[in-house]
Design a protein around this nucleic acid. Structure first.
Lengths: 194, 194, 194, 194
DNA sequence: GATGAATGAGACTTCATTCAT
DNA sequence: AATGAATGAAGTCTCATTCAT
């Protein structure tokens, strides 16, 4: 029963991800999502309060999964530079290998929903510490590996290019092979290293 | 007569810019735009074929104005590094000082409209050459100032952070003063310089 | 369930028939049709793709029903003259007794929709053969009962007056009793008999 | 001045005729008519109260012109049968040679405007007498040339086919040559002659 | 008188959400 | 609990008519 419930919820989230990524939030009727999920239109409203709620819940799941993948083989015991390379390698591989997830998250963070979420996170220092990027930059600054710029700027200097590049790849503007990815991460490191 | 016509067209574009920046394309009914512009709903359709046309025309104007501002005091006769600093300084100042324009252009370039425009540009080498960033990176690579990475990657490494940072500032996540801007551009240069 | 669905579809078609007959296609907003049918505006679009589809579907139903009625007590085994009288008697009775159906069908066949349908029929010989009028005139010509004029002309000579007369009656220009109908059909027969 | 006024009015009527015939009343914006007539949109409203008025005035002119043409070489002094043949020959030639006029008049008489006009005519016996068809049928009946059916029925039996045939020709369903026209009129005469 | 820009009512259609089954 | 038919608010766009120039 509970398993079945989870299955349906999951099916809806999966369908929503695909359809949102393809058509955007506004181009994705709830009926279309329900159909793709193989459930009735009304059923969607038993699992989610409304469309906005579905979007927010989907974000939570995607965010969680993304974090997990990005932290694969990542250990805070490794030396700082290695940690940096691992983290961004994971990030870029994840976003380029999972275009739907990336497109959804981009859309989300550029929407009113996302702004609010990010603002909430910034104001919760505990949550902030849990962010592996923030933590890494904090330590790296403390240990003198990288320049002493605000974390937000460091994020811009590193995540900014990663996302930009992924967008270019997904739009078909560039072909990203492993070598190019590594060279790019090298450049990111150059940008911030002391 | 012609002046008044221009005035009304201008008022609609201005209203559209503000409302699109605030609510996104889909959250901005034409009626709301018309009202903000102080004209009747039907009037909008005398100046623009339809909503899509309005969006594309607004883009043309914004793109033009942005290019102009970004090229202020920029001369291709200056030494490469100076050109780089000038260009990105102008860019960041423009985007942070004109949040509505920035938000609109971001939205546009991440929408189907914008993808098409960028694809068209990429396929027209003449147009590509006219892009000051592309031109600068081309020369800088030839003259050995910067690393030999594809232009698209160089764009990611430099424009990526600039846009990311602007978003952070507009969302209120960071306070950008002149010194921070200059330090950031320094970091951008470090990322790509040979 | 299915019955109820049919009921609603039927109610919409019925309402459309009445309103189209009264106001013409263009003078009949979908909202008015929905209201008369006792359903919400959106409901109409669950049963018909759009207004055009509604018109075409209504035509199909009306055409079917009209054919049925017109063929009442009609047998191809009867002698040709009797068949002629039966067919036109049925036709005139049907059109004058069902003014809404008649007005709708007239409108339809004089509209771009109808022109297309008639053209399609003319080009499909199988469909053409199925037309009782065409079949009757074909046989009557072959058997030497009537003059050897193109079928289209024979249609004009017989259906033309029938429709004209119906229009006159519906507009209140004339009072059609049974005797007058029979005399008229006599005249039609005189027009084409050899 | 007055000539110029007439010219403009005429140009508008001419443009309206062409556009109505092509697109129907509802598919013909007044702005389109004005443009084709080479006048401003507002100007149209100086010559006609509104669109309905334009339609009614256009009808008056077309009706007048049609009568004129149809009466070419027609004399009430000729023998009845000759008058009949002349009248219907003129009628068919006129409608097939002037498809725009025919389409407009058909549209008009099948619209609420036309019903009213015809009703008004029927109730004005003086006007009725002026109708050459009505007059001809009156005399023919009195002189025993044709069957004693109500004039409206005689109209149906003769004008009905004529209009039906013209529609078929204009829709491309049949090719009308002179011989076929004459044969058709023969059939019309057969239908009503005693 | 002539113009045509401006208007806003109203048409068609979509879709988030509800609710009877 | 699940469904999906029903709904009507809201969005885009057209066009008859007006009115300032």
């Amino acid at each position: 029963m509970t398993q079945e419930k989870k299955d349906k919820r999951c099916a809806i989230l999966q369908a929503a991800l695909e359809i949102f990524a393809e058509n955007g939030f506004h181009g994705s009727p709830t009926s279309m999502i329900a159909e793709k999920a193989g459930v009735g239109t009304g059923t969607l409203y038993r699992y989610f309060e409304n469309k906005d709620d579905l979007i927010r819940e989907l974000h939570k799941e995607m965010d969680l999964r993304a974090r997990e993948v990005i932290l694969t083989d990542y250990a805070t015991t490794l030396p700082i530079p290695e940690r940096f390379f691992k983290l961004f390698s994971n990030l870029i591989h994840y976003t380029t290998a999972n275009p739907r997830e990336f497109r959804f998250l981009e859309q989300f963070y550029n929407s009113p929903y996302g702004i609010a979420v990010r603002q909430a996170r910034l104001q919760d220092p505990e949550n902030l510490e849990a962010d592996p990027f923030v933590a890494l930059f904090g330590e790296a600054k403390k240990e003198g590996f990288i320049v002493n710029l605000p974390t937000e700027v460091l994020m811009a200097l590193t995540a900014g290019p990663a996302f930009f590049l992924t967008r270019s790849k997904l739009a078909g503007f560039i072909n990203l092979d492993e070598e190019l990815i590594q060279n790019t991460i090298q450049a990111l490191w150059k940008a911030i290293k002391r």
